[in-house]
Design a protein around this nucleic acid. Structure first.
Lengths: 254, 254
DNA sequence: CGAAACTTTGAAAAGGATCAAACTTTGTGG
DNA sequence: CCACAAAGTTTGATCCTTTTCAAAGTTTCG
């Protein structure tokens, strides 16, 4: 039975159990949430800066990014999301979006209206706390991103992003042996890391040249995980995956 | 009656009311929280990366910063906090600190143990939601910081930080006419913005030379607010101050 | 098959970093 | 209250990482 064949809310329950304790009561309650499933293409605008959405969007399949645009038109990507994530969970209590939410690839979205979600949190404090915790993990990832952009070289930034992607994809079973379909263009990598597309390209060349990774036809394989981790100063602590058993046998630390 | 003469928890109540609706019931409940007040000097380590604190720290007076250190020893400051803020509120549900929490100046701290705080959130959903919202605003500020560091020039970054500081200080009544005691060293400004201290210094010189600001003896005065805002591409939307009436008559947008 | 999106490469320019050293302010103890 | 040390600021000169510009390949997809 694949994720698609189970109810769309199973994804959510499994996800919340990753970092929080949920009993049968809460799982049952979650399953009673109204949810609207929708498949969309890449580049689909889920929400725009300034809007006040009435629901959250659980990503069941595909990739999403969040963008901010500077007043002189430059784009900064704030974060990427993989299946199981809820990119705009903060709108549950921070009504106005301060960034765009856009699909990076084709995606299956599960919309969860705010009102029953809030009611559920009030009735089941454990669910409220689990969702709160998810927004806190999102913030922790964002903080790590600041340090990467502010204080590491272009090479380290790219390496760090690749490590993060591989790790997060592995957790949801989308990376076998640190090998996965790369959802991002070099343009997007640059906009995420504050780099020009030319720089990104040269760094990827370089990493390939040193046999650390290979990347062709949109498939990325990490050959020398330790080295990539060292280059990117990657320590998965900030992802707060603790309780989560890796889907495949990826070693934890070094 | 000054803030110090009222109970330390009044600061918290007024703060939460800024973005959330709280009735008398909730205010009463908040006042019943156990709170330990403590005065400390500058450079005091409130929490260290990797620690699991048992309480949150409400800043009653002074300034706090949060730092991350890269594995090659560079420091990135993630955010600054002004009176009324709770820099480590996330530890209520994300137990392990992924950064240091340090006082920038002498400070008065109010420690709030996690346990009664969590109990209060369960008993009064509105309080839980208000605190959740505070962590979401903190995350929104962090996101804006990413865009500033990733996609704007050194000059714009410094201007943006000054605008943000002036705005946040004004809200808590610590900036008269966009004039305030500057709590940060140029070293700290640099570490916050991913710049070298030399760069920061030259940019401050330049802003002074253009009569946009003046800064001497640790007192910063913003003479040309519109220009500084334009240079820093500053739009206070991301601070989510909406409901808050400014303490002095600072105009909103331009 | 062709257009659009994406990647690659080369060359030149620029924005900040780094290094080094002097100057100023702040805080402390005598 | 002064002297001194430590912390913080300022300035000049040089270097280097990354950007920008330009143009040619390569995929992808309708």
């Amino acid at each position: 039975m694949t994720a698609d064949e189970r109810g769309p809310l199973d994804v959510l329950i499994r996800r919340l159990k990753r970092a929080s304790r949920l009993d049968e009561t809460e799982a049952e309650a979650l399953l009673s949430l109204p949810a609207i499933v929708r498949d969309v293409g890449s580049g689909y605008m889920i929400g725009r800066s300034g809007e006040r959405p009435g629901q959250c969007c659980l990503l069941a399949d595909g990739f999403i990014r969040r963008d901010q645009t500077t007043s002189d038109g430059k784009r900064q990507i704030l974060s990427f999301y993989v299946p199981g994530d809820i990119p705009d969970l903060q709108t549950i209590h921070l009504k106005t979006l301060d960034h765009d939410v856009v699909t990076v690839t084709e995606a299956r979205l599960v919309f969860l209206p705010h009102e029953p979600l809030v009611a559920l949190c009030r009735a089941h404090p454990l669910i409220g706390e689990a969702l709160w915790r998810e927004t806190l993990i999102d913030a922790a990832v964002t903080r790590a991103w600041i340090t990467t952009i502010g204080r590491t070289s272009a090479r380290a930034r790219v390496a760090h992003l690749l490590c993060e992607l591989a790790t997060r994809l592995d957790v949801v079973g989308l990376a076998e042996e640190r090998r996965f379909r790369m959802p991002l263009t070099q343009h997007e990598i640059g906009d995420a890391l504050g780099l020009s597309i030319v720089s990104v390209n040269r760094i990827l060349q370089d990493l390939r040249g040193h046999k650390v990774i290979s990347l062709s036809k949109r498939v990325l394989a990490i050959h020398d995980w330790d080295k990539l981790q060292r280059i990117g100063q990657f320590d998965p602590l900030y992802l707060h995956l603790h309780g989560a058993p890796p889907a495949s046998g990826m070693p934890e630390g070094s």
